[in-house]
Write a protein that binds this DNA or RNA. Structure first.
Lengths: 329, 329
DNA sequence: CTGAAAGCGCTTACAG
DNA sequence: CTGAAAGCGCTTACAG
């Protein structure tokens, strides 16, 4: 309610001096400083954020675009980011693209309107060509998702390795008929995963028929559907590489319901190492992603770019992935 | 980059007219409108959000304070809120109290600095006395959490009923030795749950020893700890009412590991009906909360209060809870 | 239908 | 160490 003017009037000083006190500026007489502080307290004065934004040309706000907050992978990612943002004095605007191009773009517009100081992009429904124009409005950092053509800081995992180690594990377990539900190849992240998958297959002279490839599946229900499609096959696969633990969980749960034994009849590799991976029975063999570290680094880099006004200091941080073996393989 | 002035200069019109075009004000000559629109497009002009905030004395931003985003209950709640906020033209600031009083208070300060138009409080670490002073700075809506003394809109569930039906179910299954891990009684929400629990117990002349009460437990690890404490007891309980599915899952998982049969040796009732409740084996008998509806209603009411500048139209919406029976009981 | 002017609440050169 | 003045980029009475 109270403004800087009122504090000034009440203390008989100028708004300038009051402002200096607010901002811990030196060169303010100690006695005056105390008087101003007291008046601020009495009036319950708090500097108006909108005015500071306009004047200072910064918002102390960062937008985080993710694709599905109810996916534990993203809630953990956001959790890490929120913690760092808070420590550094930034607010976090949560933007859910809901796997939708238009929504993602609309959220990116926040940068144009100077509604945020920067955007962390952890969703990538659009191509780089579409995203690129936004880079001139402010800093963008990619997190988890990436694109080879992008010249932005990218904090991400080695998805090629993820595809490779998961598949190799299945092959070492004796499987030669392996299905793949690791995501659409349109997206770089999942394309690399696919390449890792194929690398392991190639090394052992294995191939995969088209019908065993399931693109664009995300949730538990999707996993159930995949199981049914496999279950209906004459000579189906004996193992499947799933692109997420939720998909893997759906497959496993439905398999159990239909008395298909996991891993004996169907081995399953998940991805993410979410809490549920160790909770369900059999536990899901999966690829652990350093989610917390990714979120932390992305936010740290974002804040660094804002504070030091760095121009696209293009750099990529590629974090290692790890195979966690449980009972589903 | 471009400002309204530059658009004005380029078109030879006044900033006033440009502003009218931006805001779809009527009474602008159609031809001029087109010229302005074209200039805006060419310049890539987007109105500066900070200036609009200051001038308009509103931020079109709402803060949501939750206590733990990695808890699926909250990620689903936030998911519903984000959707509605987007539809209504509001941005959502995610504030995680991390079950910490100070953090919660610091987030409430956003209201004082007019950094948000309103706050949805879905975390309640502080007493009502501490929260109350903030109500004069802007609208606050409580969601899920509540306090009898609060005169705010509160969208919440009937926790008394939740405690009652869950416990009654256990009693009907033949249990007389029932433990309780439904949360601290300091908080109204969990106190009501406790009262519902006791109501069911009283009706059947049952009592609970102090050692069987486990306050303030939240996650999977907590559940594991609870199991071990029960497991170590001489004449322990044969059933437990847990305050969340994560706690229940932890109990169940650890029970299995120690060859304690669920539900035969230990029956478990969870709370929330999270996805994992139906994924783990045995499935968790739990209390379904209408999470999506709660989030939706809280956000709708928040937006309504902001848009219509309603003063504390104190009202409470109490949503029904439902028992979902699975295999853990 | 249109524009000049004031003002939202701050902060920052600038001058003293 | 202190203050008057300008200005951040808008929108809205007000006057025409």
């Amino acid at each position: 309610m109270a403004t800087i003017k009122e504090v000034a009037k009440r203390t008989g000083m100028s708004p300038t001096t009051v402002s200096r006190v607010i901002n811990n500026h030196p060169y303010v007489d100690d006695k005056k400083r105390r008087i101003v502080l007291e008046a601020m307290d009495e009036l319950g004065y708090v500097p108006n954020s909108s005015a500071r934004r306009l004047r200072g040309q910064k918002t102390n706000t960062i937008a985080v675009i993710i694709s599905r907050i109810v996916n534990p992978f993203f809630s953990h990612l956001v959790d890490a980011m929120e913690l760092i943002a808070g420590e550094k004095g930034y607010q976090l605007i949560l933007c859910d693209s809901r796997l939708d191009k238009e929504r993602e773009l609309r959220h990116l517009e926040l940068l144009k309107a100077k509604q945020v100081d920067g955007v962390i992009l952890a969703s990538l429904q659009n191509d780089w060509e579409t995203i690129k124009p936004f880079t001139k409005y402010g800093p963008i950092v990619m997190c988890n998702e990436y694109d080879r053509r992008a010249e932005l800081p990218m904090i991400r995992c080695n998805q090629y390795e993820g595809g490779y180690i998961g598949t190799k594990h299945l092959i070492e377990k004796g499987h030669t008929n392996i299905a793949y539900a690791g995501g659409a190849n349109r997206i770089e992240l999942t394309y690399d995963r696919w390449k890792g998958f194929m690398k392991a297959m190639d090394e052992h002279g294995l191939t995969i028929p088209d019908e065993w490839m399931f693109p664009s599946f995300y949730g538990i229900e999707d996993g159930k559907n995949i199981f049914h499609r496999i279950y209906a096959m004459q000579n189906g696969p004996t193992a499947i590489f799933a692109g997420g633990d939720e998909v893997a969980a759906g497959i496993i749960q439905e398999a159990k319901r239909f008395h298909c034994r996991v891993p004996d009849d169907l081995a399953v590799v998940g991805y993410d190492d979410q809490p549920l991976a160790s909770l369900i029975d059999p536990g899901i063999t999966t690829i652990n992603q350093p989610t917390k570290l990714m979120g932390t680094r992305a936010m740290e880099i974002m804040v660094d770019m804002i504070k030091n006004q760095r121009k696209v200091t293009f750099k990529e941080e590629i974090l290692p992935l790890e195979l966690v073996i449980r009972q589903s393989t």
